[in-house]
Nucleic acid binder design. Structure first.
Length: 263
DNA sequence: CGGCATGTTGCGCA
DNA sequence: TTGCGCAACATGCC
């Protein structure tokens, strides 16, 4: 589930599993996911490097390596990481496998991605996709004035599409935008350039609420049995706030659920 | 079988 | 130059 909260959860996991670890060996055959595009070269270049730190910006992760290069990772729609003993059977849809040594012990981290829309860029230069990212709501907070200025240029976009624009706010995806607008009581179809400052404050608060709630859900792990969504994927069911039937609309090609009564 | 899915990029056009 | 609208990508699941 890779939106900001899922990627932040992944960053914490990778920090525990990989920070300070030496990469003994990398195995991949997937020329679609890795850059450089030759999987053997990609694997060879990573061997013997040590992972110094892992940061996140929006939906992107960045591993800093001890030779000055960085590994930028995007999970696409279906990417995630699995940690296990080296001898354990490989997980289904494993695309890249990292064999590590950490504190004298051998470990394995697998990148799993059935749909193969994820990316791993090994480079010394900052990729343009990373440079183009807007402020990260969790790491940077939300500046209402700056956000309003950016939204003002989007004359035809809905507020929901604009929130999902990674150059406006980095990390907001379909789930987070849908949930945050419901929490804020703002109609997702409203024009981005016409949203009031009062509404923007409510949206900023709704984003924080959604992100924190999702992070807590992920941290609960197996203990959390039910998903943390209030409206996402719940069209036709009653609004948890007012009981009205939740509606569904497509904005920018993405399914959006909202309450026609209180949003 | 048809429809839907947590995301991004690239293209033509205004 | 910037914004817009859409198809494409690859695969699983219901």
């Amino acid at each position: 589930m890779p939106e900001l909260p899922d990627v932040e959860h992944t960053r914490k996991n990778l920090s525990r599993w990989m920070r300070g670890a030496r990469i003994e060996h990398v195995a991949t055959e997937d020329a679609r996911i890795v850059r450089p595009k030759k999987p053997r070269a990609f694997a060879r270049e990573l061997a013997d490097l040590t992972v110094e730190s892992i940061e996140r910006r929006g939906k992107w992760l960045c591993l800093s390596l001890d030779d000055g290069r960085r590994l930028y990772i995007h999970l696409g729609m279906t990417g995630w990481f699995v940690h296990d003993r080296p001898a354990a059977p490989s997980p289904a849809y494993e695309r890249v496998r990292f064999d590590l040594t950490r504190k004298g012990k051998s470990e394995r981290v697998s990148y799993v991605d059935p749909r193969r829309w994820g990316r791993m860029l090994l480079t010394r230069e900052e990729p343009s996709v990373w440079a183009a990212l807007g402020p990260d709501p969790l790491a940077d907070g939300i500046d209402i004035g700056a956000l309003a200025a950016r939204l003002a240029r989007r004359k035809k976009r809905s507020i929901k599409e604009a929130l999902m624009d990674q150059s406006i706010l980095a990390g907001v995806g379909n789930i987070v935008a849908t949930e945050a607008l419901w929490n804020a009581g703002v109609d997702p179809r409203a024009k981005a350039s016409a949203v009031s400052t009062t509404q923007l404050r409510a949206i900023a608060s709704g984003l924080r609420w959604t992100i924190e709630r999702h992070l807590a859900y992920l941290a609960a792990g197996e203990a959390a049995k039910t998903d943390p969504f209030c409206v996402y994927g719940r069209a036709g069911k009653p609004c948890p706030r007012c009981g009205h039937r939740l509606a569904r609309v497509v904005l920018g090609g993405r399914t959006t659920t909202y309450c026609p009564h209180c949003q």
